[in-house]
Amino acid sequence: MFWKIVGGLILAWAAFMVIGSLVGFLVKAVFWIAVIAGAGFLGAAAYGALKGDDKKKIGS
């Protein structure tokens, strides 16, 4: 009975380690995708602001 409990605890620990590493990888991947997307958005916004037509006016 003792070895069944120990085996179950080891199996649960291994499962949590695998699941934790996968979740950690996904969180890091999503973070870096968000950083790259944010930099691209800021770059596009800055380009659009600098490249914008000066002759455009609101209401005209």
Results as ranks from 00 to 15, higher is better:
residue 60 S to C: 10
residue 9 L to M: 11
residue 35 V to A: 02
residue 41 F to R: 11
residue 22 L to P: 01
residue 56 K to M: 12
residue 15 A to M: 09
residue 5 I to R: 15
residue 35 V to H: 00
residue 43 G to N: 08
residue 35 V to M: 04
residue 41 F to N: 06
residue 6 V to I: 12
residue 36 I to L: 08
residue 21 S to Q: 13
residue 51 K to G: 02
residue 43 G to W: 06
residue 49 A to H: 12
residue 7 G to D: 05
residue 48 G to I: 04
residue 25 F to G: 11
residue 2 F to P: 01
residue 58 I to H: 11
residue 7 G to L: 03
residue 20 G to T: 01
residue 22 L to F: 14
residue 13 W to M: 14
residue 23 V to E: 05
residue 2 F to W: 09
residue 3 W to R: 14
residue 12 A to K: 08
residue 3 W to K: 14
residue 46 A to N: 09
residue 39 A to E: 10
residue 40 G to Q: 10
residue 14 A to M: 12
residue 52 G to S: 15
residue 9 L to A: 12
residue 1 M to H: 07
residue 45 A to D: 07
residue 21 S to K: 15
residue 33 I to Y: 04
residue 60 S to Y: 11
residue 50 L to E: 10
residue 23 V to S: 05
residue 48 G to Q: 11
residue 15 A to G: 08
residue 35 V to R: 03
residue 2 F to M: 14
residue 35 V to N: 02
residue 59 G to Q: 00
residue 59 G to F: 02
residue 31 F to V: 03
residue 49 A to I: 12
residue 32 W to P: 00
residue 24 G to H: 02
residue 24 G to R: 04
residue 54 D to N: 11
residue 28 K to C: 02
residue 17 M to Y: 15
residue 11 L to R: 14
residue 28 K to N: 07
residue 32 W to L: 05
residue 11 L to K: 15
residue 27 V to D: 01
residue 42 L to W: 12
residue 56 K to N: 11
residue 8 G to I: 00
residue 11 L to H: 06
residue 15 A to R: 05
residue 47 Y to V: 09
residue 14 A to C: 08
residue 28 K to Q: 07
residue 18 V to P: 00
residue 26 L to H: 04
residue 29 A to H: 05
residue 42 L to R: 10
residue 6 V to N: 01
residue 37 A to H: 01
residue 47 Y to Q: 08
residue 49 A to D: 10
residue 6 V to D: 01
residue 30 V to C: 01
residue 30 V to K: 01
residue 44 A to W: 13
residue 8 G to N: 08
residue 43 G to C: 05
residue 42 L to P: 00
residue 22 L to S: 12
residue 18 V to K: 06
residue 22 L to I: 14
residue 37 A to E: 04
residue 19 I to K: 09
residue 33 I to K: 05
residue 3 W to Y: 13
residue 47 Y to R: 12
residue 16 F to D: 07
residue 13 W to N: 09
residue 8 G to A: 02
residue 50 L to A: 13
residue 21 S to T: 15
residue 60 S to L: 14
residue 39 A to D: 07
